[in-house]
Amino acid sequence: MSEKKGFTPEKTTLLFINNDSEPLFSKKNRALLTDPMDDNNPITVQVLGICSALAITVQLKPAIVMSLSVMAVMGASNVIISLLRNLIPNRIRIIVQLVVVAAMVILVDQILRAYAYDVSKELSIFIGLIITNCIVMGRLEAFALGNGVWKSFLDGIGNAAGYGFILIVVAFFRELLGSGKLFGFQVIPDFIYDMGYVNNGLMLLSPMALITVGIYIWIQRSRNRKLIEKN
C-alpha cells in the first residue's frame, strides 16, 4: 500500500463511525451538508456539472429525478470509496473510482427503469452520463479519499443537494416561463393568455439555462460578497 501525501493517519477501521467522540451532527459535520448549498455550491461557485444543468432543466420533474439520482450515486460512491480509501493503490485510484461510480449509476438506472419508466425515458442518456458528472469524481478525489465514512457520506449528500437545488431553481423558471406549466400542469391561467401573453420560446433552448444560472450567480455574489474573487 502506498502512502499518500496529505493523508492524516487516523484510526481506520471498517466501522461505519470512527471511535472518536465527535457527535454525528457536530458543527463541522453540519457544515459539510450546508456549505455546498451556498458558499461552496458545486454549480454556481465551483462551476462543475454545467452540462447536465443545461440538458435536463426544461421541466421540473426530470430535474428532481436527476437530483435524486445524483444524490443516491454520490452518497453511495462516497461511502464505498471512503471505506476502501486505505486499500486503493494510488496509481489506479481513478479506475477504481470509475468502477464504483459506474456500478452505482447502473443501479440507479435500472431502478428508474423498473419503477419510473416514463421519466427514465425522458432522461434517457443523462442518467448514464452521471458518471461523467465532474461533481461526483471531484468529491471522490477531494474528499472521500481522505475522510471518514460518515463525513464522506454527508459530503456526498450535501454536494448533491447543492447541485439539485440549482437544477430545481433553473427548471422551475424554465418550465414556468417557457411552457407556463409546473410538473406538467398549467399554472398560468387562461385569461392571461387571452390578454396576449405568450410563452417564452427562448426559455426552452439550452442557452437560457446558462443565462439563468448566470443570473443566479450574479444575485448570489451580490448578496455574498466573500465569493467575489480579488484580483
Binding site: V198, N200, G201, L202, M203, L205
Partner: peptide, 10 residues
C-alpha cells in the same frame, strides 16, 4: 435576438 428566439411567431 432575444425577441427572435423567444417569440418566433411574432
Amino acid at each position: 435576438a432575444f425577441a427572435f428566439f423567444a417569440y418566433p411567431t411574432y
